[in-house]
Design a protein around this nucleic acid. Structure first.
Length: 571
RNA sequence: UCCGGCGUCGUUCAAGGGUAGGACAGCGGACUUUGAAUCCGCGAAUCGUGGUUCGAAUCCACGCGCCGGAACCA
């Protein structure tokens, strides 16, 4: 996992190509100065109420990466399960699976905020005894009204002055089920006139007569985020509690609770700018709509930026982590160009994906002068730059499939693929010239007749003439049929969140195209989830759900950069 | 409008008062049995106005813009 290791000399100047990470710099400095009160500890604290997406990956990479800065640093996985209404073990499992897939290991340190419910409760009684918390029995509306707003300070009610004894009795009644939901809450007694609205006597506990996925029916009161989070950090010994910018508004409250409990050497909250990605939607609510309303085929739809979706799409975990490190960490609230993610995916796949041939839109080619029934085996490298990946053989015969896009009726001079009378190289096999075009009644090309140059075995002309174009091909009698799922970006608009009337208006109607193509027979032996490059087309992955040897399904992870498209655009 | 956060190439991240740099994207070229990859090159930015200073992206002041905050969500 050396890729996650950011360790470097804090005194050394930053290398030009190392992205900034102000949190890592801060921690490195503290480490160098011996300023930490205990061993370095971070945590990744998801709420188990949804699937992880690439925004979470940034947080995961940050937290687990920070832990590697110190030899005994650790990062905990802690489920922030304080709201039983929305949480479930289904998500607990998918989240662990996704974090593990990214390549991170929390060891034995799997925790739940619900593990701390007893301690939290005891602490709450302590605050009540100190006169720092009280039970409020007014309605939700009444409490909100009395809290004021941005321009109006809150006003205190009579319950604020109740004695600790009365509050303790009321709180125990809450715990014991003596109140119905909504009838009472425990609030911290801070400052109803604070400019910081979060400090206007925030709620610590509310009543929910709902069973919890781990504590069952033991509790009917559940702690709020602000009351649970910092205290959970303190219990575990977390040194740096990293969260996103929307929690800046909670920072003072985070510190207040720890101070009120007189926690020595309290954890420190540090906020960073979360990831936003162009052409992508990451909010839980919007992801939910896409799934529930059937705009995609589920949480792991390859068009979604969920980790499950990206995985099924064929994005390597290493590329996602590399991306998270590439974008850096700051307090800016920016939108990262999805092209950067795609770059990291191509970079990883270019190095690691074995090459294969496949056609997405088949066009039949018959080599008129190639002997009927003859088959020869062509040996091809699995990777052009990495001989260690070996070679494979591909059958070649009289009838072939080529890519329909490699044919043009009236090609411009810049075109060096196939056209009437044009010559092209079949990758690794031979040179052929188009001699006849067979069309149907509508003029649509049905088949190409080509002349095969027997003196061009392997693709080199015996007379030394240059052939500029090389295209991929498949022996029609040997090729394996394959369902091709061609994915594009889910949204056509760079910022779907700004679309009117809502983000759904920005959906790309062509985000999925399915074709019936062919691939080399060798793909029938490939494992589900295997990633390959179909030469000249892009990177593909055997679909983990639907692909079987007798019915291959390939998902296009991402296309290769298309230099011809740029030329064509300028014609 | 009150509180808080943030403003640097198209995007993202740098530059402890001293030549504004990298990556991605873009553009141009070389190479190429993947129009890929690779290699070489080019263009491109300090929100504004004042101030301090020999010197300001950096310090100060005042503006402007964007984001977050008034959940019994996290």
């Amino acid at each position: 996992m050396s890729g996650h290791d950011r360790k470097r000399d804090p005194e050394a100047p930053r290398a030009d190509d190392q992205p900034g990470n102000f949190v890592a710099e801060l921690v490195e400095q503290e480490l160098a100065q011996g300023a930490l009160p205990r061993r370095l500890m971070t945590r990744f604290p998801p709420e188990p109420n949804g699937y992880l997406h690439i925004g979470h990956a940034k947080s995961i990479a940050l937290n687990f990466g920070l832990a590697t800065l110190s030899k005994d640093g650790v990062c905990n996985l802690r489920f922030d399960d304080t709201n039983p209404e929305t949480e479930s073990t289904e998500f607990v499992e998918s989240i662990q699976n996704d974090v593990r897939w990214l390549g991170f290991d929390w060891g034995e340190r799997l925790y739940y905020a619900s593990d701390y419910f007893d301690q939290l409760y005891a602490w709450a009684e302590q605050l009540i005894a100190k006169g720092l918390a009280y039970v409020d029995v007014r309605s939700e509306e009444a409490i909100r009204e009395a809290r004021g707003d941005f321009h109006r300070p809150g006003v205190a009610g009579p319950e604020r002055d109740r004695s600790p004894e009365e509050n303790l009795a009321l709180f125990r009644k809450m715990r014991d089920g003596g109140f119905e939901e909504g009838e009472a809450v425990l609030r911290a007694k801070i400052d109803l006139a604070s400019k910081d609205v979060k400090l206007r006597d925030p709620l610590m506990y509310r009543i929910k007569k709902v069973p919890h996925h781990r504590t069952g029916t033991k509790w009917c009161i559940y702690p709020m985020y602000d009351w649970a989070h910092g205290q959970s950090d303190a219990i575990e010994g977390v040194t740096h509690s990293i969260c996103t910018l929307e929690f800046v508004n909670h920072h003072a409250l985070y510190d207040w609770f720890l101070a009120a409990l007189e926690i020595p050497e309290p954890p420190r909250q540090i906020e960073f700018g979360k990831l936003n990605l162009s052409y992508t939607v990451l909010s839980k609510r919007r992801l939910q709509r896409l799934v529930n309303e059937g705009h995609v085929r589920g949480w792991d739809d390859p068009r979604l930026a969920t980790l499950a979706g990206l995985r099924r799409r064929g994005y390597p975990a290493e590329a996602i982590v590399a991306f998270c490190e590439r974008i850096g960490v700051s307090r800016n609230d920016g939108v990262v160009d999805i092209g950067l993610l795609e770059h990291e995916v191509r970079e990883h796949l270019n190095a690691h994906a074995p090459r294969r041939m496949g056609v997405v839109r088949p066009l039949k080619v018959v080599l008129e002068n190639y002997p009927e029934g003859q088959v020869e085996q062509v040996e091809l490298a699995n990777h052009p730059m990495d001989p260690s990946m070996g070679t494979r053989t591909v059958p070649f015969s009289r009838e072939l499939w080529i890519e329909r896009d490699d044919w043009m009726d009236e090609p411009p001079k810049q075109w060096f693929r196939l056209g009437p009378g044009r010559e092209v190289r079949l990758r690794g096999a031979a040179i052929v010239r188009c001699t006849e075009v067979v069309r149907d009644a509508d003029g649509v090309v049905q088949e190409l007749r080509c002349h095969w140059d027997p003196e061009s075995k392997g693709g080199n002309a015996a007379d030394g003439r240059k052939v500029k174009g090389t295209i991929h091909w498949l022996s029609a009698t040997h090729a394996a049929p394959c369902e091709m799922r061609l994915y594009e970006r889910l949204f056509a608009d760079e910022n779907p969140n700004a679309a009117e009337p809502d983000f759904l208006a920005a959906l790309n109607p062509e985000s999925l195209e399915i074709t019936q193509g062919f691939v080399e027979p060798s793909l029938k032996d490939a494992a589900a989830g295997a990633r390959v490059q179909l030469e000249r087309l892009g990177y593909f992955v055997l679909d983990t759900h639907d692909s079987r040897p007798e019915h291959l399904v390939l998902n296009r992870t991402i296309g290769l950069k298309d230099g011809w498209a740029k030329i064509a655009a300028k014609l």
